[in-house]
Amino acid sequence: MLHIKNLTKRYSEKTVVDDVSFSIPKGKVISLIGPNGAGKSTVMGMISRLIAKDAGVVEFEGRDLSAWNSKELSKRLAILTQSNNIQMKLTVKELVTFGRFPYSGNHINEEDERIIQRAISYMELEEFQDRFIDELSGGQRQRAYIAMVIAQDTEYILLDEPTNNLDIYHATNMMKIVRRLCDELGKTVILVLHEINYAAFYSDYICAFVNGKIARFGTVEEVITKENLSEIYGVNFEIQTIAGKPLSIYY
């Protein structure tokens, strides 16, 4: 289980995350939404130890995150951010192979090799596996990174704006993959999203942030209401139920 208690982050005088507490249910898809600067990415960064917290506790499996050995943690929790600029010549397969680093270091054994191949075929990347990362399209590259996270074989997967810079075809595919990671592979997926409708359609829980605080946290139906969204984003909303999900129209 992942419990977040009184998490706080300040940049000089400005408090960007202010006393945030919530618990992440296991085996579900949880989306963090909110306007720009609400602190959702910072919360994600602190949960994944990429950003140092100023106060509070991130309790993972009963122990504070900072008490974990970084290598052990990397077998349990994976994070994928948007800042992935690699200067090296790296093929898709080599990238996915890095997912096994926490387990086997630089020496890959046969079992690792099997897991890597499974991750590549799960992401339907077989035909690209010997191509260089920098020669792929944005959607393919994103899938290669997801394959690496799958090879890392963690219970928790954190994705920071995975649909960023993708067109609607690839973004929708990305969200379907997120759903499959949860339903088929039993992973807990936590993602930061800007598109409210993707969050509403593909996640189980939604946590909405405003000004560094949690505005609403609950199931999709509880959070995605006309009143809530208007309050969070400060614009007019209409909610329509399509395929059993509350989808929003804003103007």
Partner: peptide, 20 residues
Amino acid sequence: LALLDVITLGKDQAINLGVD
């Protein structure tokens, strides 16, 4: 020195893969 290969993936990825 053995961690150099992973470090070239960038800070976030290196930390994700358990590098101090």
